[in-house]
């Protein structure tokens, strides 16, 4: 019919115009992504393939495979990340569970205290741990005066210190998604479980825990990935004994002024993170991490 045709053309034009407008509106954001993400990462890739003599070369990657010190660094990085994630789960999950059982008003107060550390800088928090945990630090002085132990214990400049600091920094990243997932669990599920004969413990393990795993998985993944590239805390509290990839990148630049080697490490770290996220995304919808899905 003529009338229908007439409008069809006009409506198509409207549709196209709308799409252009949408594109126009999002172009500043796209530009920003291009400038701060695509170009630097592209540059990183490029530099990593430039050898010491300024020509194309794979020497930066070959060095990583050949030298034993590099593999140690990668192992340490994974070790620290895994341990931090594990400790965060052990501390954060019960805490989030406790918060989820509180009335919303109290839970929000707890949430604020969990987020409080974000208000001070990472560096300050890390150095605060140094002050607390060092040989003559508050913890050792107090414990010795109380007679808990006689010799000052070595809490910092080693793995212990690194882990204490890392767990402290990372904990909110685990608690937030876990708490969110727990809050979203309808109380009627637990009532139903109990009505059907489940003791509180059974109800927890058969209903509550499985329903909270998406949050737990998302939080753990976040913590793990953040740990992989972490710098400040292991650098300060590890005292040079705990060397992670990020620290090697810094020393490559500051000490050896070798941009190629640093870039190659950056690329490997980036790819590893991407692979881990990709594998994880096959098990859980990534939008659950960003809070979009349920």
């Amino acid at each position: 019919m003529a009338a229908a045709d007439m409008n069809a053309a006009g409506l198509r034009r409207d549709e196209r115009a709308e799409r252009w407008r949408l594109f126009g509106l999002s172009s500043p954001a796209l530009l920003l992504v291009l400038v701060i993400l695509v170009i630097p990462v592209g540059w990183l890739f490029y530099v990593s393939f430039i050898g010491a003599d300024g020509t194309f070369s794979l020497e930066n990657y070959e060095r990583m495979i050949k030298r034993k010190s590099y593999s140690r660094i990668f192992i340490t990085t994974f070790q620290v990340s895994l341990l931090t994630t594990g400790l965060c789960i052990l501390i954060g999950y019960p805490l989030a569970y406790f918060m989820s059982q509180l009335p919303v008003k109290w839970a929000n107060l707890c949430l604020i205290t969990v987020l409080l550390p974000f208000w001070t800088s990472l560096l300050v928090r890390t150095y605060a741990w140094l002050v607390l945990l060092q040989k003559q630090g508050l913890v050792n002085q107090w414990a010795i005066s109380m007679g808990l132990w006689d010799e000052p214990l070595k809490f910092v400049h080693n793995m212990t210190g690194t882990l204490i600091g890392m767990v402290h920094i990372m904990l909110p990243f685990l608690i937030l998604p876990v708490y969110g997932a727990m809050r979203a669990i309808d109380g009627d599920y637990l009532k139903a479980a109990s009505n059907l004969g489940a003791s509180p413990r059974r109800a927890f393990w058969t209903v509550f825990f499985p329903l909270s795993t998406p949050g737990l998985f998302a939080g753990s993944l976040m913590v793990f990935v953040l740990c992989l590239g972490f710098f400040v805390t292991p650098a300060v509290l590890g005292g040079g004994r705990v060397i992670m990839v990020s620290m090697k990148i810094v020393s490559n630049i500051e000490l050896f002024v070798n941009w190629g080697a640093a870039s190659a490490l950056g690329v490997v770290l980036l790819l590893m993170t991407a692979v881990i996220l990709w594998i994880a995304s096959r098990f859980l919808k990534l939008e659950q991490m960003t809070g979009g899905g349920h």
Binding site: D186, D188, Y189, K191, N195, G197, A198, A203, V207
Partner: peptide, 18 residues
């Protein structure tokens, strides 16, 4: 409740989604 042995149908069914 878990020892009472009564069946209950909830208003929103409360079927376990997992």
């Amino acid at each position: 409740p878990h020892l009472r042995g009564v069946g209950m149908v909830f208003q929103n069914y409360a079927l376990f989604p997992h």
